[in-house]
């Protein structure tokens, strides 16, 4: 069997990128984003991307890099409050945005990977999110039909992975990564630690290797903190 392990992010993306493609990128804010794969996409110069991601990074980091490089045509996101350039491009009509409630976004991606073309949800009923969408009554309550999301490529970030593509995430860096791994025609995963086959606890694997086509160990992780909040050691007050 051909190996899934790639030497670096650029070779992991070789042959996968084309103008106008749809890319899913894991992460919540800057937490759990595939930093190295995003950099490689920027270097590739691929453009007119539709990017599915909860947020769009910040100015100068994460997906914000692709935004300022003019590579993104459309975003499917739930929240972009941390990104001034995003808000400006959107208001000026230079960036197309499909705002999707966060839970609906997660479920659309999950459905896309699970072979479910659409589902019904109460979220967004009576709001602009419902415009143009089918509604249906179940047990006296109105629900909205939401379509599944798939992508040409999904890029995800995990903590540990092995040659089979099995992945384990760490703390809240998990977020959208597991669903996105299932919903890309091709999924490329980057990990902080690449371990030998057999050394991950088989009961603790979050993403089974079947979903992951290529895997690489990122050479470095900045893991930038978006909002550093701490408490002094002397005080017992809680957050």
């Amino acid at each position: 069997m051909a190996t899934k392990i790639q030497s670096d992010a650029a070779s992991a993306l070789a042959g996968l990128l084309f103008d106008g493609m749809t890319v899913m990128a894991g992460g919540f804010g800057l937490c759990g984003i595939p930093e190295n794969l995003i950099l490689a996409i920027r270097e590739s110069g691929v453009k007119d991307l539709t990017v599915v991601s909860n947020n769009c990074g910040v100015d100068g980091f994460g997906l914000g890099l692709l935004l300022e490089n003019g590579q993104i045509r459309k975003m499917i996101s739930s929240y972009v409050g941390e990104n001034e350039l995003f808000e400006r491009l959107y208001i000026e009509g230079r960036l197309e945005v499909e705002f999707t409630p966060q839970g609906t976004l997660a479920e659309r991606i999950r459905a896309g990977g699970a072979g479910i073309p659409a589902f019904y949800t109460r979220t967004g009923v009576g709001t602009v999110v419902a415009e143009g969408k089918e509604t249906r009554e179940f047990d006296g309550e109105t629900y909205l039909m939401e379509r599944a999301l798939k992508a040409d490529l999904s890029i995800v970030k995990a903590w540990k992975g092995d040659a089979e593509g099995n992945l384990i995430y760490r703390k809240t860096a998990r977020n959208f990564n597991p669903m996105m791994a299932t919903a890309g025609r091709v999924c490329v995963a980057e990990v902080e630690v690449l371990v030998g086959t057999g050394s991950l606890d088989k009961d603790m694997i979050h993403t089974p290797g079947v979903y992951v086509h290529r895997i690489l160990k990122g050479p470095a992780y900045e893991k930038r903190i978006e909002r550093l909040t701490t408490r002094p050691r002397t005080e017992k007050a809680s957050a």
Partner: peptide
């Protein structure tokens, strides 16, 4: 909602973890 039950207070100075944030992207 970014994926945690049992959210604790802000970490002590120096113990912040970039993999552990709340929905406002604050370290917890």
């Amino acid at each position: 909602e970014n994926g945690m039950l049992g959210m604790g207070p802000y970490p002590f100075e120096g113990e912040e973890d970039p993999d552990l944030v709340n929905a406002g992207k604050m370290t917890i």
